[in-house]
Design a protein around this nucleic acid. Structure first.
Lengths: 244, 244
DNA sequence: ACCTGAACACCGTTCAAGT
DNA sequence: ACCTGAACACCGTTCAAGT
C-alpha cells in the first residue's frame, strides 16, 4: 500500500463543463441543462461544480460566451473601407444571428446572460459602435444605430427559435377543453375567424425562407440607418423624419 | 345540523388567479410567480389551480393576454388615412412597448407565451398586416414589415428590462475571485480596457432617455420601411438596396 | 363541481466532512 | 485543492380521496 495510490482523477476543467452543458442543450433543450445532469456526465456529483462556478447563472453566461466564441464573432474585423459601414453592420447582424442559431435555444441562452456580462458580445458592440462612430455618427447615435440592429437580431432569433424550446408536447384535448371553457370569459369569442387569417398569414410567410425573411427586415433597417446617417450629416442636430 | 351548512367558499375565478399572479410578478418578479404562492394568496392549495388551468404554461399565457388587454392593445383601430400607415405602425410599436413595460418583466412574460398563442398579440399582428397590405405591400412583405417592427420592440424591451428581473444580488467578492481565475483561460485577458470603453458607451447613452432611444431606432426602422414601400411600388419584384 | 393531502420526481444551493 | 454526502428549501405535477 505505498505504490499504486488512489487513482485521483484529474480535476474537471471549467471549459469541459461548459462543453457538456452545450451538448445537453442541443440534445435535450435548455430545461434539461441542470447541474445534476452535467455533473453526472462528468462522472462527478452536482456540488462539485460549485468549486468552479459561482452559481448556475455564471455557467449560463459562460455558455453564452462560448457559443459566440465558437461562432468566431470575436474575430470580426472592422471594414477595410469605412464607407461600407452599413453593409458591414449588416454582416455583423448576420454573423450574430448565425451564432445564436448554432445551438438550440441559443437566443435565450445568450439573452439570459445579461447584455453587459456576455463579454464577447460586449466586445462586438464596442467594435461596432466605434465603426459607426467613424462613419460619421456622433457618440450617442453610433450606439443607437448598433443597438437597433442588435435588438432586431434578438427579437428575430428569439421568435425564430420559439416553440423549438421545450420538448414536443402532447396535446391532451380533454384538459384543453376544460381550460378553453374556463378562459372564454377573458377571450374574444370571435377569435375563430381570426385564427384562419393567422394561418393564411403563415402561408404567406412560407413563400420565403427564414433567411430571406431576416434579410428583408435587416435590409429595411440598414436602409433606415443610412437615411438617418445622411440626415445627420446634412442638418446638424435635429432629425425627425418629415411627413407622417 | 340542517340549517347553517358548510361555508363552501365561492369557486375561485380564473381571472382572479391571473390578477394575483400579476401582483406577485410586479412585487417580487417572475421567479416568485409560483403555483404555491398564487394558491396561498387565494386561500387555496396549489393543486386546486389544476382544475382551472391545464398547466403553468397556460397560466403564463393568460398573464400575457391580460397584460396586453389591460394596456388596451386590443382596442387599437386602423388608421383613418391609409397614407399614414407608417406613423400608425410606429404608434402600434409604442403601444406595444408601453404594454410590455406596464409590468415587471412584461417582455419576458409575453415572449414566454409563444407568439401564436398570445391571442391579443396575434390579433394585433393580423390587423397591422392588413393595414400594411392596404398600404401597398404585397401579402408576404406586409407581414414582414410588421414583423420587423414587432421584433424590434421585443428585442428592445427585453434588453430594457434585463437585469430588472431577479432580485438585486449581493456580490460576494471572494467567490467571484475564484470564479474569475477559473475562467481566465476562456476569456481574453485584455478585457480590462474594453470595460472602460463599455462604461463610456453607457455614459454616452445616458444623455438620452429610454423613450428617446427607443424612438430613434423606431424612426430609423419606419424610414427604412417607407423606402422599401416606395421601392416596391416603383420596381415590381426585386428590391435590394443599391450601393453597399 | 371543486378542492385537499400526500406523494413523486425533480430543482439549485450550502456545508461539514473526506481525500 | 478538489470532491462527496447529506441535507435544506424549494419547484411543478398527479391522483386518490374528500365535500
Amino acid at each position: 500500500m505505498r505504490v499504486r495510490a488512489k487513482p485521483k482523477r484529474a480535476p474537471i476543467e471549467p471549459e469541459a463543463v461548459v462543453r457538456i452543458a452545450l451538448e445537453i442543450l442541443d440534445a435535450r433543450g435548455l430545461e434539461h441543462v441542470t447541474l445534476r445532469e452535467i455533473a453526472s456526465r462528468l462522472g462527478v456529483k452536482a456540488p462539485a461544480l460549485y468549486w468552479h462556478f459561482k452559481d448556475k447563472q455564471d455557467l449560463v453566461e459562460d455558455m453564452a460566451h462560448v457559443i459566440l466564441k465558437d461562432a468566431r464573432i470575436d474575430e470580426i474585423q472592422r471594414p477595410e473601407d469605412i464607407h461600407s459601414w452599413a453593409e458591414w453592420l449588416a454582416d455583423v447582424a448576420r454573423s450574430l444571428r448565425k451564432a445564436l442559431l448554432s445551438h438550440r435555444e441559443g437566443g435565450r441562452v445568450v439573452a439570459g446572460a445579461a447584455f453587459g456580462r456576455a463579454k464577447s458580445l460586449a466586445s462586438l458592440a464596442i467594435l461596432a459602435s466605434r465603426v459607426t462612430k467613424e462613419a460619421g455618427f456622433d457618440d450617442a447615435h453610433a450606439h443607437l444605430a448598433v443597438g437597433v440592429v442588435f435588438d432586431y437580431v434578438w427579437g428575430y432569433v428569439i421568435e425564430e427559435q420559439a416553440g423549438f424550446g421545450p420538448e414536443p408536447e402532447d396535446q391532451s384535448p380533454e384538459a384543453a377543453e376544460r381550460y378553453k371553457e374556463a378562459m372564454e370569459s377573458v377571450l374574444p369569442s370571435d377569435f375563430g375567424p381570426q385564427m384562419k387569417i393567422l394561418n393564411a398569414a403563415v402561408r404567406d410567410m412560407d413563400s420565403l425562407t427564414p433567411d430571406e425573411r431576416f434579410e428583408w427586415g435587416l435590409q429595411a433597417i440598414i436602409t433606415g440607418l443610412k437615411a438617418e446617417h445622411t440626415a445627420a450629416k446634412r442638418g446638424s442636430v435635429k432629425q425627425s423624419s418629415p411627413s407622417a
